[in-house]
Amino acid sequence: MPITYPVPAQTSSVFVVVTDRTPTDLSSIIPWRMGPSHRRAARDALGTPRLTLEVFRSTRSPWRRMDLGAEDLKRVRRARHHVVVTSTAPVEEQPEAAQVARAAARGIAEAYHGALYDPLTGAAVYHCAECPGERQDFQLGDDWLGWRVSCAEEEHACGLGAAAPAGAGAEAGEGCSCLVTTSRGLRRFGLPEITLTGLACAHSLCAVTVLRTVAESLLAGHFAWLSTGPRSACRGIARRLRVAGVDYAVLSGIPDEENGLLRVRLTPDVVARSCLRLRLPGGHDGDPRPHHTPGLLVA
Score class of each variant (00 low, 15 high):
Asp67Glu: 11
Glu71Arg: 13
Arg77Tyr: 01
Arg77Pro: 00
Ala79Pro: 00
Arg80Gln: 10
His81Phe: 15
His82Arg: 03
Val83Glu: 02
Val83Asn: 05
Ser87His: 06
Ala89Arg: 09
Pro90Asn: 04
Pro90Lys: 08
Pro90Tyr: 02
Glu93Arg: 14
Gln99Leu: 15
Gln99Tyr: 04
Val100Leu: 01
Ala103Ile: 09
Arg106Val: 12
Ala109Asp: 01
Glu110Arg: 15
His113Trp: 04
Gly114Met: 10
Ala115Lys: 12
Asp118Phe: 07
Asp118Thr: 09
Gly122Pro: 00
Tyr126His: 14
Tyr126Gln: 10
Cys128Tyr: 07
Cys128Arg: 15
Cys128Gly: 14
Glu130Ala: 13
Glu130Thr: 14
Cys131Met: 07
Pro132Val: 15
Gly133Arg: 06
Glu134Leu: 05
Gln136Val: 06
Gln136Trp: 02
Phe138Cys: 03
Leu140Cys: 05
Gly141Asp: 07
Asp142Arg: 15
Asp142His: 14
Asp143Asn: 12
Leu145His: 08
Gly146Leu: 10
Trp147Val: 08
Val149Cys: 09
Ala152Thr: 15
Glu154His: 12
Glu155Ile: 10
Glu155Ser: 13
His156Gly: 04
His156Trp: 06
Ala164Trp: 11
Ala166Trp: 02
Ala166His: 01
Gly167Tyr: 11
Gly167Ala: 07
Ala170His: 08
Gly173Arg: 03
Gly175Ile: 06
Ser177Gln: 12
Leu179Asp: 00
Val180Gly: 00
Val180His: 03
Thr181Tyr: 00
Arg184Gln: 14
Gly185Cys: 06
Leu186Val: 13
Arg187Leu: 03
Pro192Met: 14
Pro192Ile: 14
Glu193Phe: 11
